[in-house]
Amino acid sequence: MTLIAADEVAEQKGGGGKDPQPTKAIEGRAPLQLAWARLRKDKVSLACLGVIVLLVLVAIFANQLTDLIGHPPNEQYRDEGLQPNGLPVAPSSFFWLGGDEVGRDVLSRIIHGARVSLLVGVVATAFAVLIGVTIGTMAGYFGGVIDTFLSRTMDVFLSFPFLLFAISLVAVKGASLRISIFVIAFFIWANVGRIVRGQVLSIREKEYVEAARSLGASDLRIMVVDVIPNLVAPVIVYSTLLIPTAIVFEATLSFLGLGVPIPTPTWGNMIATSQSTYLQAPWYLLFPSLALFITTLAFNLLGDGLRDALDPRAARVLARK
């Protein structure tokens, strides 16, 4: 009997049943807030986010950082930075990550390279998303002839020979940061467009779109108010995955000498110039490659984490398996 009595107390305590707090706590929480709450529990994604924030900070404060180190990226240290035989110096207390073929500090150059990589990656992706969402939404929403036309256009862009185009454009216009961004955005927007079109095709059939129509809403209003907000999640995920693609594109362009003109340091042109001395100076190849690798990996893992956080059902299914 004492046992039962004790339990009863426990029950009364445990099962208040009408504790109003949880209801209040979740009142009006936006889907994105919930996603953020979920993301916070994902250690890998948080670490990746940390890495990315760090990279952004490095890129923003590149000048201050290199000032602190005392080695501007384009300063050639002919004496301390080169071995007597003209080869780059190994990592040391002077050049933490070693020097390059003309005696510049690899660390400083990687720091400044982050600037270019992130700038190109983010801006090109932003343009791509802007164009892709616009075109993709129109194709998916209007359907019919408009869709056929826009979809075929996207197909054309997706099957364009990227390098040939880049080479000829640079030949005509000369290499520059702007051209890099343009070329990259030009080539990746159709990916966004396709994904968005697919999403819009299904959103268009939702009853809430029909409801808006039955209320007399215009197409523009429906697209802006009802369709695009529902694209936020997939677009966030997809752009997170697209940024590293753009960064690698940029590195490729720089590697081929089609990107940002020298002497501006980029990870791509560093990797390119390191080729000639990689046997003697592996660090010169290693560190820029590592920077590129870590950045790409961080964005990709974060993208996956975001996908799970924004679509909890998928995450749960995965967790169960």
Partner: peptide
């Protein structure tokens, strides 16, 4: 002429607050 739809999940835009959904007719007209 107004409609009420079958699917209580599909007929409300999940990204919008209820107040703005119900206010839609006022806004549109």
């Amino acid at each position: 002429i107004q409609m009420i739809f079958q699917d209580p999940y599909g007929s409300l835009n999940p990204r919008r607050r209820v107040g703005s959904i119900i206010g839609d007719p006022f806004d549109i007209h």
